[in-house]
Design a protein around this nucleic acid. Sequence first.
DNA 1: TAGATTTGTGGGAGATTGTGGGTAATACAA
DNA 2: TTGTATTACCCACAATCTCCCACAAATCTA
Lengths: 155, 155
Amino acid sequence: MGYLDFTGKYTHSVDAKNRVNIPARFRKILTEANIGEVVISKGIDSGHIDVYPLPKWLAIRDKITASMQLVNRTHRNFLRQITQNAAYCTLDSQGRIMLTPALMEIAGIKKSGNVEFIGMLDFMEIWDPDELKKHEKNTPLTESDFEKLEQLPLI
Amino acid sequence: MGYLDFTGKYTHSVDAKNRVNIPARFRKILTEANIGEVVISKGIDSGHIDVYPLPKWLAIRDKITASMQLVNRTHRNFLRQITQNAAYCTLDSQGRIMLTPALMEIAGIKKSGNVEFIGMLDFMEIWDPDELKKHEKNTPLTESDFEKLEQLPLI
DNA sequence: TAGATTTGTGGGAGATTGTGGGTAATACAA
DNA sequence: TTGTATTACCCACAATCTCCCACAAATCTA
């Protein structure tokens, strides 16, 4: 890993079997990195699904495992939240993955509907188009957000 | 052990003989690790049963044995809680386990009803669907929980 | 522009899985 | 021992999922 580079936005459709094609550009990145499996999970913002290339997910999982104290109720709840809606997906021979009904429900994605893929550098997001518009309208970046971001050595 | 990886949520049904099928995905993990026996016990949060692959249970048992101070009343009570309702279960030829009436009672799981399996990485939980919903409603992750979790090097 | 290749989408057949029930073996009580 | 209840093991079948093939649209190439 380390040098995955998902960028851009692509519209795709979900078929009657809940399958979505991963955009060719993203798929190429995956195959070149020899990654045939991804993990989809509930995104932190509502209205979308996160798609992690397997190695990225494993790294996240290991960090979680290492720092969880399962006698702690909050930790248990957090872990449950994370794992509950996480699903391993192997790409089929056409390069598609199958979404779970639970995640589609959470993200507002409709069977036989459309979705937007957004590249997030080392992972991807899948949005319901309406939810995405709504999210962008409701939570624009403000001046004060930018000020906070200035703290980070970003650009 | 060490690399069991139970993730996801699956709905299954309990039959008239108190048997539940372990989700195929979880079962595959067990058989690949050559584990044909699990231990079910009372979950820490009420409303569910914990399912430990045998090696994980043995590790827990050993830790408990080593660190319990049986002159300590709390320790005695804790130990009693744990062992009292723990039951060794071997998977039948269909990959099912049989729940004990005591644990079903404790978790609110009904004969011939449904249950939710939740993967918790190295063990599983079995919830009564209503209890799970109730639990999630009563103990949602709050902003301050997330702030605490931000301290951990998670993602 | 025309042909070749890639990409997005749909559907069908076989294998797997979830679930129910029957019967033999075992444990238990009287 | 005998009768009863419980458990373990097996078979059966429907629903689901996986894998594979097909084809049209889009893109690339010469």
